[in-house]
């Protein structure tokens, strides 16, 4: 991973780093991607990916409204809320 890729990923993931963190990430990933090269040598041409480890499929439940938590308890964790809604800065002028 080079600096340009790191900048792109940081922007995409809404993250910024100190110079020390940047260097740490680049060093760490350099070692990691070297180690990961070995995975390419495994023949998986006849293998399906494993996404679900246990034999379950199409798990459905009743389409019913279930009260999960009081609205005020959920809103209490937001830094700003007004009239039962979360508050964020304007995105349109």
């Amino acid at each position: 991973m080079n600096e340009q890729t790191l900048d792109s990923l940081a922007s995409f993931n809404k993250l910024r780093f100190s110079p020390e963190e940047r260097q740490d990430i680049l060093d760490d990933f350099s070692q990691l991607f070297d180690a990961l090269e070995v995975l390419e040598n495994v023949d998986t041409t006849q293998t399906d990916p494993l996404i679900q480890t246990v034999p379950l499929s199409n798990i459905m439940r009743e389409d019913a409204v279930v009260r999960m938590a009081p609205r005020q308890d959920i809103l209490a964790n937001a830094s700003e809320h007004i009239q039962g809604c979360f508050v964020a800065p304007k995105v349109l002028d």
Binding site: M1, T5, L6, L9, A10, F12, N13, K14, L15, R16, F17, E21, D24, I25, D28, F29, L32
Partner: peptide, 21 residues
């Protein structure tokens, strides 16, 4: 950006970057 950059530690940030890569 502020929330995630101040709120997460370095190892979590690395996990996010690696995951999206």
């Amino acid at each position: 950006v502020g929330s995630r950059s101040e709120g997460f530690g370095l190892e979590v940030k690395k996990t996010i970057l690696l995951g999206s890569y």
